[in-house]
Amino acid sequence: MTRRGVLAALAAPVLGSAWFAHARGRNPYYEGPVTDHFDGLRFFNPDHRWSKTPVEAFRALTLAEKEPWPLTWPSPFADRPPARVEGAGLRLAAIGHATHLIQTAGLNLLTDPVWSERASPVGFAGPKRANPPGIAFDDLPKIDVVLLSHNHYDHMDLETLTRLHLRDAPRVVTPLGNDAILKARDPRIRAEAFDWGDRVELSDKVSATLTPAYHWSARGVTDRRKALWAAFAIDAGSAGRIYFAGDTGLAGGAIFTEARERHGPFRLAILPIGAYEPRWFMKDQHMNPADAVTAFRLLGAEHAVGCHWGVFRLTAEGVEAPAGALAEALAAEGVADERFRALKPGEVWEAPVA
């Protein structure tokens, strides 16, 4: 990869959709009919179309004042999960950033698994972990299904997905186009691609429906928005329903209201609370903690856990800022702290016994 390509790919998790020149070209990942969110080449959010100029991107990523981060910020927690959680039990372990182990109804699910040291296309540069994964890879139980929300490097880690395939051969359920990226890495990876609104049976008791998120996609210079991004609404039967946002902005909040109406009520929502400063630049694609509390209310969720913070430095806020801002936002809205927790790697949330 050229130096230009490396820099572009490293910027992919945080750059706006107009950072690179629009190249018509072809879509190397997906071919399909035009829809209300696909123009024949690129995907888009029909109710939240946004862009940022190269000058704005430079200001946000290079010139913005940044709060300091420590080189390491280890979590005091480490989890050794059970082999399975059966029946109506629901256990979630935070592994770090957007990676979680969800255990319910006898099924082991991983979201956006990243065990690599960097969220980057190369091993020598790019955002580096401030703390290790909350579950050591070798301590993972057998993984049945991976839910992969989109292709940014802090969410789609090909090295980790290859390791998982070699160990457990899980199904990888992902939005349109991302299967091509995975199979280009290893054709044996069991990648299955779906559109917004598609319901996928994960077992005889658990299903997941892909729902819209306010985000975008890119792995390099010319492929922005050529693969789809999504959130997931998980129906685990008697264990309840779970919402995993992946990565998203709030915008007008319509996607959360729609998710509640179509797929709720939710027992648990997994919502990003980090990578949000400078706000003028990041708000279209990333929620801040106050936005996440609004999304929590719109979803009508009983409980929530906050993720996407404290692991990889992507933006300008400090390492502890999201957790502090979440506490302030909850207090301002009169929501009890225990209903929305900012989990550190290795922390566990278990559904209260009814």
Rank of each mutant, 00 (worst) to 15 (best):
V145Q: 12
F266P: 00
R225I: 09
A169R: 10
S116T: 07
H150W: 14
S75E: 03
L61Y: 09
E159H: 10
T222V: 10
D195Y: 11
L299G: 05
P81C: 03
E338S: 14
R219F: 11
A321T: 14
L101R: 03
L343P: 03
H303N: 07
T160R: 10
R163Q: 13
T35E: 06
E277S: 08
P28I: 07
M287A: 01
F244S: 11
G220I: 00
F43Y: 11
L271C: 02
R267F: 08
P68M: 08
V85G: 02
A323P: 11
F77E: 07
E328A: 15
L10C: 12
E117H: 09
E65D: 14
G126I: 01
S217K: 03
F137K: 01
P82I: 08
G310V: 11
W349I: 04
R190W: 06
A323G: 12
S203G: 00
C307R: 10
A93W: 00
D139L: 05
K128H: 10
A259Q: 04
W196N: 00
T62K: 11
E317G: 08
E31Q: 15
T53H: 00
G246L: 09
S116P: 00
F244E: 09
L161M: 01
K283W: 14
T222N: 12
R199E: 15
K205S: 12
G40Q: 01
A213Y: 00
D291G: 01
A269W: 03
G252H: 07
S116Q: 00
A254M: 07
A304H: 02
R341W: 06
V319L: 15
L10W: 09
R4T: 13
T209M: 03
S203E: 03
W216V: 03
R80K: 14
K183V: 13
T62Q: 11
L164Y: 00
I102R: 03
A8P: 07
A227T: 15
F266T: 04
W196L: 00
F266E: 01
P133Q: 04
P170F: 00
V305N: 05
A12D: 15
V319M: 13
A336Q: 02
A275Y: 00
R185K: 13
A251F: 06
R188A: 14
R80I: 14
H155A: 14
R80C: 13
A259P: 05
I102H: 04
P132K: 14
A275L: 01
E317T: 10
P81T: 08
P54W: 02
L176E: 05
L271F: 06
P212D: 03
Q285G: 15
L63W: 10
D39W: 01
A301Q: 11
V145C: 14
E302I: 09
I255P: 00
D235G: 04
Y243Q: 06
N131C: 15
